[in-house]
Amino acid sequence: MPEDNNEIVKNNQHHHHHHRRRRGWVLFWSILGVLVAIAVIFAGVAWHNLSVTTSDMYSTSGANAKRNARQVLKQGKPVSILLMGTDTGALGRTDRGRTDTLMLMTLNPQKKTTTIVSVPRDMKVNLPGYAAYSPAKINAAYTYGGVKETINTMQKEFDVPIDYYVLVNMKGLEKAINRVGGIDVTSPLTFSFEGSSFKRGQTYHLNGEQALRFSRMRHEDPNGDYGRQQRQRLIIAALLKKSVSYKTLLNRSFLDTLSDSSQTDLSMKDMLTLARKYSSARENVKQDHVEGNNDDEGGVSFQSVSSDERQRVTNLIQESLQN
Rank of each mutant, 00 (worst) to 15 (best):
V34A: 12
A39N: 13
S245H: 09
D270G: 00
H19F: 09
T273C: 07
R231T: 01
I31M: 15
Q71Y: 08
N178H: 05
T257I: 05
S304N: 14
Q287V: 14
R67Y: 11
Q155H: 04
V72T: 14
L240H: 10
A39Q: 12
N108R: 03
N315M: 06
K124T: 00
M105I: 04
Y278V: 03
K77W: 07
P120Q: 08
V125R: 00
V300K: 11
E309I: 01
R228M: 06
G182W: 05
A281E: 06
A237T: 14
I317Y: 02
A43L: 15
T114S: 12
A131W: 05
V290I: 13
R228Q: 04
R179G: 03
G172I: 07
H19G: 11
N223F: 13
L127I: 01
V244G: 00
R218F: 04
V313E: 02
I116V: 13
D270N: 14
N11P: 01
S55E: 15
N68L: 11
Q311F: 13
I81T: 01
E157T: 04
V313I: 15
A140R: 02
A275L: 01
A63F: 04
L240I: 13
T143M: 08
V9S: 05
R70N: 11
P161E: 10
L50W: 05
T86S: 15
S187I: 09
R282D: 09
L255S: 03
M1T: 10
F198M: 06
G181V: 12
R233S: 12
T190Q: 03
T203V: 05
